[in-house]
Design a protein around this nucleic acid. Structure first.
Lengths: 166, 166
DNA sequence: ACTGCTGCCGTTACTATATAACCTCAGACA
DNA sequence: TGTCTGAGGTTATATAGTAACGGCAGCAGT
């Protein structure tokens, strides 16, 4: 078990890179990526699907038996503020932010999510045509956009191929 | 108290028209708009803001003392299926569908919502440029869209004007 | 060293949102 | 008559999220 390739306990290189990037980002922002916050971030990042707060809590308890709901929610709030994770509203669940690694700061646009009904995988897009169209539509009715949730549910490419009929 | 103008118990003309349209639509769909469902729909329509399930439940109890969570949720599920209402995911709340009155069936595109942080008012858009951009972005990665949530939070025109600074 | 402050987190209790499971009843119909 | 179906009543429970208080480490000012 010395060379697991991306599982829960073994930390692969991609994960290490992501955590290092998060660390750097917090440093620049004057925020503390504490042990707890790092653990929760790692749990979010290592999951292949968005995880709910209580699913995270269960996993966290392996490392931190006393953990309770506020433990997780406080860490999640911090990670959201730092832009290290996103919340998927339709699922009440959390995913790592793919942009977080790109050192150059926050999203230019609010992200969009594609959620597969079949496999549950969730992909983050950052399509500026979508963001632009949305900003335009809002501006046309005099609405000032502070932030946006765009979540699409459907079938991902893999599951479409695997599906019975065309 | 005989000529209230749109309040909770008095039913104004717009509401009557909306309910009649809902009735017609259910008829065509072979679905039953029962008394309960009609009551819940009326509660959603008469509210000026999106209402949560439990807020609806409280109001419903005035007419139906025995009402419990499943009472409301079942009615809401039905109304969602018929396209008579929408759920605003960010608020865990429900609003009437503005298209429902236009007899010609369902939305062509998934709706978009503009949610004002200050006054809570929520406006439904049906901007096809947004829908189109989103469909394009999804298609580009081989994703089949089944349905989409687009919710923008910010300041509505009225609250922008009323706000302290520009 | 003492004081007071701040930020992080533990802990308990609670609120809010949503669903499961089981039951009854009315209406359709063989 | 039996039985099937859909609507909804009823009880209990699951899931999601928050309030409020307390302890403690780290640090600034005196």
């Amino acid at each position: 078990m010395a060379t697991g390739q991306g599982g829960a306990t073994e930390m692969n290189t991609a994960m290490q890179r992501a955590l290092a990037a998060a660390e750097a980002r917090c440093l620049r922002a004057g925020a503390q990526l504490t042990e707890l916050r790092r653990q929760v971030l790692a749990l979010v990042l290592e999951a292949e699907q968005p995880l709910g707060a209580y699913a995270l809590l269960d996993r966290l308890k392996a490392q931190r038996p006393g953990a309770a709901p506020p433990t997780v929610y406080r860490a999640l709030d911090f990670l959201l503020e730092q832009g290290l994770i996103h919340k998927v509203e339709r699922l009440n669940a959390f995913v790592g932010c793919v942009e977080a690694e790109h050192d150059h700061g926050h999203h230019q646009h609010p992200p969009q999510f594609l959620i597969c009904r079949t496999c549950g995988a969730t992909v983050e897009l950052s399509d500026h045509a979508v963001a632009h169209a949305l900003a335009d539509a809002a501006r046309r009715v005099g609405f000032q956009v502070a932030n946006a949730t765009v979540e699409v549910e459907g079938l991902c490419a893999r599951c479409t191929e695997a599906a019975p009929a065309g």
